[in-house]
């Protein structure tokens, strides 16, 4: 397997602010790499550096074998990029928008337009103007524009933000299809079920890459156990539990609390504390770690 992305101590400062802090990682060709982190943790800054749009303050990166600093043009000619803010021309049709992007990338092959529209299943709407399209169709068009020049690597920056559950799944079907064609994908998302669809996941916090591994390994390495507590009154129980040492994270779900508990704290201790406070515990059960738990544990 060859390496699609390789970074070494990649760093970016804005004034005194360290946006990306000595990032070293590798993404292999053909992988779907999920890049997770809170807003402002450095995800977009990383992607902009990898595309050669922003100079690193320190360190280096190679993308598809090219140095992002000195060979930015080669990198961009071989990479695609799509975000929620992708510029589409509202008054142009799907086909006209794609033709425009083909021109930008110097693709003068009419067959490629049809091929891309075919593979993303947007041919039927090709003569509709963007302003008349639903969010889901716009998103497909944005993806089509990002791959018109047959990139080997695709950066997707929160491509499914605000998209409904069915449209999100349909979009991931497209990502899988592109991946099956050999395109390497780096994707950011706030949907933790989507993190499960990635072959590898990295978790960022405050500019630093805290973990990088396959989703299953990240779940196994979770530094604590998961407990679900059904109790009344739930909010009071939450307030008590939050004060206990050894509670890594709490989540108030619809009818229960989900806790990530460090090995130092036994569940009996939590139980006892709740009973002392007059909380009625209806059910207490261990849970299986999810990617959301993993994400939360690292924040």
């Amino acid at each position: 397997m060859s390496t699609a992305i390789h970074t070494e101590n990649l760093t970016r400062r804005f004034g005194n602010f360290l946006a990306v802090d000595h990032l070293s990682f590798e993404v292999q060709t053909g992988q779907i790499f999920g890049y997770l982190g809170a807003n402002g943790s450095g995800k977009t800054t990383t992607i902009r550096m990898l595309l050669g749009l922003l100079h690193p303050s320190e360190g280096s990166a190679r993308v598809l074998g090219y140095e992002v600093i000195t060979q930015a043009e080669q990198v961009r000619a071989r990479s695609g990029y799509m975000s929620q803010k992708f510029a589409l021309y509202n008054e142009l049709t799907i086909r006209e928008n794609l033709a425009f992007y083909a021109g930008v990338y110097g693709v003068n092959d009419a067959k490629r337009l049809n091929e891309v529209m075919g593979s993303l299943d947007i041919e039927s709407h090709q003569n509709q103007r963007v302003q008349d399209l639903s969010a889901g169709w716009r998103q497909r068009l944005a993806l089509a524009a990002a791959i018109i020049h047959r990139p080997g690597l695709l950066f997707l920056d929160e491509p499914t933000s605000g998209v409904d559950p069915v449209a999100r799944r349909a979009f991931w079907d497209l990502i899988y299809a592109l991946s099956a064609d050999g395109i390497t994908i780096m994707v950011t998302t706030h949907y933790m079920d989507e993190a499960e669809y990635c072959s590898m996941v990295g978790i960022m916090r405050a500019g630093r890459l805290l973990a990088i591994d396959e989703p299953d390994n990240l779940k196994h390495k979770l530094p604590g156990s998961i407990w679900q507590i059904f109790a009344e009154p739930l909010l009071t129980a939450l307030e008590i539990i939050k004060k206990l040492p050894g509670i890594i994270r709490t989540n108030l779900a619809s009818d229960h609390l989900r806790l990530i508990v460090s090995p130092d704290l036994r569940i009996e201790q939590i139980q006892q504390r709740l009973i002392e406070a007059g909380i009625c515990i209806q059910k207490l059960q261990p849970g299986e770690p999810s990617m959301e738990d993993v994400f939360m544990a690292y924040q």
Partner: peptide, 20 residues
């Protein structure tokens, strides 16, 4: 859609506030 484009931690905090 108060939590669109928001990370999971912020989303959980936000809902805790709403329920309180």
């Amino acid at each position: 859609e108060p939590t669109t484009g928001v990370d999971p931690l912020t989303r959980q905090d936000f809902w805790e506030l709403i329920i309180k």
